[in-house]
């Protein structure tokens, strides 16, 4: 932090206030709507603060819908996919960061480019492949397809983290008699904890939020994830907006908590990966 940074004027405060209101308003409105009883939700003009605080929407969602089951499915799939992505990405990122080998740059670039691939271009053949393998409507099917989103970015983020560790430290470990795997496990990983955490959160969040693959590959309620459940909630007969808002809060809260718990680490991780890449 430098002392010479320009100081804010009145104008800055006004601008900051506008941005903040715009950013937070939909979230607040969702929260407020979720605790309004039905007749208040559909009143004209709308009330700002609920005159009757009510948890009936949450009761509906938690006890009279499939949302709890979907929540569980989401947890299983996100944790599973994140774990696999992390293990594969740690190995690959270390290989890219620390070894010189023929074709390294091309392979590394192809990993980045694969992340640029529009989902729509591979969703059809993926569906065909998954149904041939009998993996439609299975946890493992979604866990594997989510690697398409998470693995490239994890590799990319971790490469820049691993590169930021001075190589001399690893050389010292080589001389101390450590094998490459020992170095990775005992030296590199402990030194990349912030990077690993932000990578894990990124993976978890992006799988948690994923909608299209889940919509196509999970049509049975035993594997449907929260986003699909939410969409179907708002489409099922006449939309119960109170329940939708309550379900939205239930889905968003874990993510918000996760983010703000590690905000500083996460922000620097994402921006470092992106600006260096």
């Amino acid at each position: 932090m430098s002392i010479a940074k320009p100081r804010g004027s009145i104008f800055s405060y006004v601008l900051a206030a506008i941005f903040s209101v715009v950013a937070i308003f939909p979230f607040l409105w969702m929260a407020l709507s979720s605790v309004k009883p039905l007749q208040e939700l559909y009143s004209v003009p709308p009330t700002w603060i609920p005159s009757h605080f009510s948890l009936e929407n949450y009761v509906n969602v938690l006890y009279h819908s499939n949302i709890p089951r979907y929540f569980l499915n989401s947890v299983v799939i996100s944790v599973g996919s994140t774990s696999i992505a992390l293990i594969l990405a740690i190995l690959a990122a270390y290989g890219f960061a620390r070894f010189r080998f023929r074709g390294r740059n091309a392979l590394q670039a192809s990993i980045l480019i694969s992340q640029l691939l529009p989902t729509a271009t591979i969703i059809v053949p993926l569906y065909v492949i998954l149904s041939n393998l009998g993996l439609i409507n299975t946890y493992i099917g979604l866990i594997m397809t989510y690697l398409i989103h998470t693995l490239p970015l994890c590799v990319w983020l971790l490469i820049s983290y691993f590169r930021s560790i001075p190589y001399e430290i690893e050389e010292a470990a080589l001389i101390d008699g450590a094998s490459r795997l020992t170095i990775l496990w005992k030296i590199v990983l402990p030194l990349s904890v912030p990077g690993i955490i932000s990578t894990v959160v990124y993976c978890f969040v992006s799988t948690w939020n994923e909608f299209i693959f889940a919509l196509v590959f999970a049509t049975d309620s035993s594997v449907k994830t929260l986003p699909v459940g939410l969409a179907e909630f708002s489409a099922e007969f006449k939309t119960d907006w109170g329940a939708v808002m309550a379900a939205s809060i239930i889905m968003t809260l874990p993510i918000i908590i996760l983010f703000f718990a590690i905000q500083r680490m996460f922000v620097s991780g994402i921006t470092a990966g992106a600006t260096k890449g």
């Binding site: 001075p166 001399e168 430290i169 050389e171 010292a172 080589l174 001389i175 101390d176």
Partner: peptide, 16 residues
Amino acid sequence: PRQRNIAMVFQSYALY
């Protein structure tokens, strides 16, 4: 390196 029975002190110390 580990089979050569040597020890090294680095410019940056390279402590863990």
